[in-house]
Design a protein around this nucleic acid. Sequence first.
DNA 1: CCTATGATGATCT
DNA 2: GATCATCATAGGT
Length: 213
Amino acid sequence: MNEGMERTPLTRDFFDRPVLDVAPDLLGRILVRTTDAGPMELRLTEVEAYAGEIDPGSHAFRGRTARNSVMFGPPGHSYVYFTYGMWHCLNLVCGPEGRASGVLLRAGEIGIGAEQARKRRFSARNDRELAKGPARLATALDVDRALNGVDVVAGPQGPLSVLTGTPPPRDQVRSGPRTGVGGDGSHQPWRFWIDGDPTVSPYRAHVPRRRST
DNA sequence: CCTATGATGATCT
DNA sequence: GATCATCATAGGT
């Protein structure tokens, strides 16, 4: 058949759909990250949907702020945030514009660029751990707030883009509660992953931290 | 394998 | 001042 179709860039229309349609559809897609050291490719294996202002688990739940403003903009752009004083996480904004929904990219398998990733993720004990978790994924791909708001459907010449790849069969897509999300947003099964893939991160329930003295 | 905890600072109330 | 879409490490099983 047509092997070339596996590497077509995703379009704006792909992202201009309800986030619960886009999120599972991103599994198996190829995230391309081009750094000064060259191109990297990551096959997405785990994502989470965040449904904007109606979703208590979303950064957009309490409306627009300086941090989350790109979520309120057009679909097909990156939303990168800094958290826990140390880490970055990468999301892709979904449509329609103004809905402020997005997909957190939680894990994947690195193909091209593994040598770059090993240098940044020096504590990883094996290649399956290079991007096993959202902050690990961002670290491996050298993603930080400088990449907030990047158009990811402008083509692979940019710093971030997504190619069609090969989606898994529907019966290999699983869903369950989102990792680390508490409160009223904790029970929606809006985490999606490829069943049995060794790069999927372990589920962790939200733990309210006791304040230290 | 598992659970517990400190790190560290931007963000929001 | 509290919270946080997390991770690495230490120590138990």
